[in-house]
Every structure is written in C-alpha cells, then in structure tokens.
Write a protein that binds this DNA or RNA. Structure first.
Lengths: 170, 170
DNA sequence: GACGAATAGTTCGCTAGCGAACTACTTTCG
DNA sequence: CGAAAGTAGTTCGCTAGCGAACTATTCGTC
C-alpha cells in the first residue's frame, strides 16, 4: 500500500520521540489528513472562484446566505454564526459585498437593532456561476472514491460531526 | 439515523434549487463535514494551546520544525512549504518566535542566501507541553470511532490524500 | 570569466479578521 | 413605569498573512 504524507509523518514521529502521553497513531494520521484535505479543497476552490472574480470569503458569505432555510435573507449575526466568523468580521464582509452590489442591508422592521441582509440579482448571478465551478473542483477529489466508499466515509464523518455539534450546543 | 448539519444542508439544497450542473450529494456532504471537523479541531486546539500561552500559528511553526526528518532544524522556505504559508508569512512568524526566544536564525554555512532555523531549549519545552494538550483535544473527537472504524476512515482519507499529493507535485 | 537566470529570504503596502468597546435598541424586573 | 440587563451590529486598533518587489547570493551558459 502506498504511503501518504500522514503515514510518513507518523513513522518519523515514532522514530524520533518518546512521548509523555502516548499518541494514537490513527488519530494523529486522521487529523493530519483532515487538515491536508481541507487545505487542498480551499486552494482548489480559491482558484476556481478566481475565474468569476470572487474571493473565497465573498463566495462563502453569498453561499451561506443562499443555502439558508430563508434563501437570500439573514441577519448579520446569523451569518456570522453559520460561517464561524466574528460579528466584527461579518460586518467587514458585508461592507465589502454591499459595496460591490451583491447584497444590501435593510433595516429590520420589528426590531430596530436588527439589520436584514438580502442578496441582489447581481449577487445571485455571480453566486450561481461560482457554485458550479466550485462543485467541479470538489468533485475531482471525491471521485477517487467509489459510491460505496463515499457512503462509508460520510457515515464515519457523521459520527464525529454529530459529536461535535452536540459539544457546540452545550 | 440522526442527522447532522451536513444532512440538513443537503436536504435543504434539494428543496430549493434546480441546478445547472448536478451536484453529488455525497461529495457535497463530505466537503461540508470535512470543513466542519477541521473548524472544530482548530477551535479546540486553539483553546488547549492558550493554556500554555501559545497561539496556533506559533504551535504550528514549532511543531512542523520538530517533526521533520531533521528535528528542530529547517530553512524558512522548507517551513513555509510544509505549513502552507507564504515565504513572507513565514518570515513574519519566524520574526515573532525568534523575538520570544523559542527559535533562532543561523546563517547558512554553504549557501549564504540560506538561513537555518533552529529551535531553542525554551522552544522545545513549550512545544512539548503544548503538544500533549493538543493531543488530548484531538483524541476527544476521534474517540467516538472504534479502532476498526478509525482504520477504515484513514484508509478512505488516504485514498484522497494520495490523489491530492500527486496533484500537488505536478 | 562575465552575464543572465534562478533561488532564498526580507520588506512593504495592503487586507480579512479579531477582541474590546461602543451606540442604539429591546427585554426584564422591581 | 423606569432603570438595569441583555442583545444587534458597528467602530477601532491591532495582527497574521498575502502578493509584488526588492536585495543578496548561487548556478548555468556562452
């Protein structure tokens, strides 16, 4: 079986270190691979988005806005939470996207503290184009797995994400 | 079977959108979960590292320096490549770590363009403390899987990382 | 041996994002 | 009903990192 960078990493690890707390090689390798895959996905997504003139934080924001239960509409706080960006960071993102005409801020009607964020037609168009490109970039990595393997992978990942989601609601 | 955020995401996706290019739900869910898990791992690692007074970019740099084939010694260019940070970014990281006394820069002997980066005793001590804490944070997530499941997960992840590594050496 | 190309690392101007503090508004409690 | 507490979003000063341009050095070719 060919070795990837995580295998080499774990092997070197064993060669060089006597560790206070024993590390689970399997978990160490898993963590290494997860980071590596996400790093790759980010890079390929970034390159794909550049083709339509979007940066990844722009796409991320428009995408999160569009895939909500109320598509194309959210509050800044909701978007901040769903993207994992701080409220201040989301304010900056919205400033930038509003300036480019891809979304607009509307004062909340019932609660004057609130702002409603709405995507514009221009925003929907560019999001749509970007999404198709990004999907293809991701398909390349996923396509090395058979349908059955992909289902197994998702079942195992879900086991961890359910735990993570539970942890995050406490 | 309980549903995680990726399942809900894919379901809503189907409800709302007729898409130009068909998206593979399995790949979409996988991508969503990978990002979610890495985001969680980053957050838990960050919290753990704060206990010894390290920021994640500091730990990342010291860790990459220590797990090399030449532990504790590398060039800035090598570290930049292995961490995925630009040369300019790595220069800034090294500036900061050198200032704190955790590593030092030594002029290369054979090639005067080069700088050798070496970890200090203080750097090794703080890295060691941080690594134990980080390992425990990661173990929590991985421990929801059985040993057999972890092996299966790693086998499927490796299939993708081998593809990714191949792509990146072209 | 000289010159151009390539490489290693740094500097510079800029950006996306953060934490803390702020303003404006809503809710809760006495 | 008014004051205190809490919430929504923004501002501000700062940081980690980037791309481009730079300096210093090495290598390759003629």
């Amino acid at each position: 079986m060919p070795k990837d960078a995580a295998d080499l990493h774990v092997e070197r690890w064993r060669d060089h270190w006597v560790l206070e707390d024993d590390f689970d090689d399997g978990i160490e390798a898993m963590t290494f691979r997860l980071h590596q895959l996400v790093r790759h996905l980010r890079a390929t997504t970034k390159a794909a988005l550049a083709e339509v003139g979007l940066q990844d934080f722009e796409y991320d924001t428009l995408h999160r806005l569009m895939i909500r239960e109320t598509p194309g509409r959210a509050s800044p706080g909701e978007l901040a939470q769903e993207t994992g960006v701080s409220n201040a960071g989301m304010t900056g993102r919205l400033d930038s996207l509003e300036k480019k005409g891809w979304l607009k801020r509307v004062p909340g009607t019932e609660d004057r503290r609130r702002v409603d964020v709405e995507i514009t037609r221009a925003g929907m168009r560019i999001w749509n184009r970007a999404m198709n490109l990004r999907g293809r970039a991701e398909d390349e990595v996923g396509s090395v797995l058979s349908a059955r393997e992909l289902a197994t992978l998702n079942r195992l990942l879900r086991k961890m994400t359910l735990y993570v989601e539970d942890e995050e609601t406490r």
